[in-house]
Structures are given as C-alpha cells and as structure tokens.
C-alpha cells in the first residue's frame, strides 16, 4: 500500500472543512450537554419533587438509546409533527440530548460522593449555605467528577462521527463520499484517521493533565 501524495494534498482542504464542522458541532453540543447536565444534577441533588421524576425519565431514555436513532428521530420524525430543524442544529440538539444525561450522572455522583459531615462541619463553622456550596462542596465534587467528565467529552466527540447519517458534511461523510467518487480508499481512510487523531489526541492529553491537576479530593480517604 502506497499513499499517493498528490491525492492527499488534493483531499486535504476537504477534510479541513469537514473537521471544522465536526469540531464546531461537537463544541456546541458538549457545552449544551454540560449546561443540561449541571441543571439535572442540581435538581436531583436537591430532590426537587416533580422535576426530579421527569429528569429521571429523560436520563433513562437518553442513556438507553443510540445517538444514531435519536438523530434519526429528531431529523426525520419530528418534522412530521411540525418541529423541523436544519441538519446542523439537529446535530447539536442530538449531541446535547445524549450528552446531557451522561454529564448529569457524572456531576450527580460527584455531588453525592461528598459526605454530609462536610456540609455539617461547614455550617458549624458558621458558613452560609451558599458559601458552603462554593467553598466546600463544589471544589471537592468537581475534582471527583473530572475523570468522568473528561471521559464523557471524549465519548461525545467520538459520537459526532454518526452525523453523516443526517447528511452533515463531517469527516465520515467526506471519507465515504471520496471513497465512492474516486476509489482512493487508502488515502481517504488515512486522512480520516489522521484528522480524528488531531481532534481527539489533544483532548485526551489535556484531560489527563487536568485530572492530575485537580486530584486533591482524596484527602482523608
């Protein structure tokens, strides 16, 4: 197998464009997922009556169905009842729908891992509930959540690969398209792998640096 450099240089701009789209949708989807996840986790932590049940249902549905099916449902089924979106916002919505529940689980387990004695001690030292949350509970909860959080970000970035199914011109779409057009399979796949590595490796490395940085919750355990 020899790589044809001419083909590679010819394909490069196409892949760059596709990679930008993948990263863009991934970025907005993940940011939204974090917001949804935090919201859900706080509601479950504070045990707010009705909302808590609704969120539990959402989490079960979102975690037990594949992203591809969720995207198909949002993109092809919802327009039939009058909710139509373009492909890009559908991709963001699908990623946020899937990621929200994964993020919620990570944040919730982080919050629940803090023993009640921490809260009680803070109160007995005269800290207000808000100060307790920000100076005592959250710093510890965040550092417990970081490994799961990083794993989720990588997982969600990987999941963006299914967007080609709703005809978004992302990396997978470009690769499949080029294989079909010119039959330069090896070059097309080579660039596909390279571009995914360019996107995913830095996140993975930064993630493990971050994990090392915040590992101060182990105190006393």
């Amino acid at each position: 197998m020899d790589l044809n450099t001419e083909v590679l240089t010819q394909y490069l701009p196409l892949y760059q464009k596709a990679a930008v789209l993948t990263v863009k949708i991934g970025y907005f989807g993940i940011v939204l997922a974090i917001v949804i996840g935090l919201f859900c986790a706080l509601i479950q932590y504070h045990k707010i009556p009705v909302l808590r049940r609704i969120i539990a249902v959402y989490i079960e549905i979102s975690r037990n169905t594949p992203l591809l099916i969720q995207l198909f449902f949002i993109y092809y089924a919802l327009p039939k009842i009058g909710i139509s979106t373009n492909a890009e916002s559908c991709g963001v919505a699908g990623l946020a729908f899937l990621g929200g529940s994964y993020m919620a689980e990570v944040f919730r387990s982080g919050l629940e891992a803090i023993p009640p004695i921490q809260k009680e001690s803070a109160y007995s030292l005269g800290l207000s509930p808000l100060k307790t949350m920000f100076h005592v509970i959250l710093p510890q909860a965040v550092s417990i959540s970081v490994p799961g959080f990083v794993a989720n970000v990588i997982f969600l970035l990987k999941e963006t690969s299914v967007f080609s199914a709703i005809s978004l011109m992302d990396l997978m779409f470009t690769a499949k398209d080029l294989i079909g057009l010119h039959y330069n399979t090896i070059e097309a796949l080579f660039l596909l792998v390279v571009f995914y590595l360019i996107i995913l490796l830095p996140v993975s490395v930064l993630g493990s640096l971050l994990e090392r940085r915040v590992r101060h919750a182990g105190f006393g355990s």
Partner: peptide
C-alpha cells in the same frame, strides 16, 4: 479506544 467505532468499521469494511 481513541478511534470512533464508526472509523474502525470503515477501516475494516473499506480499508
């Protein structure tokens, strides 16, 4: 683990 599963499928099926 770092490659999306779909990429692996493509590598095997097409590559």
């Amino acid at each position: 683990r770092i490659m999306p599963q779909l990429v692996l499928l493509f590598i095997f099926f097409f590559g």
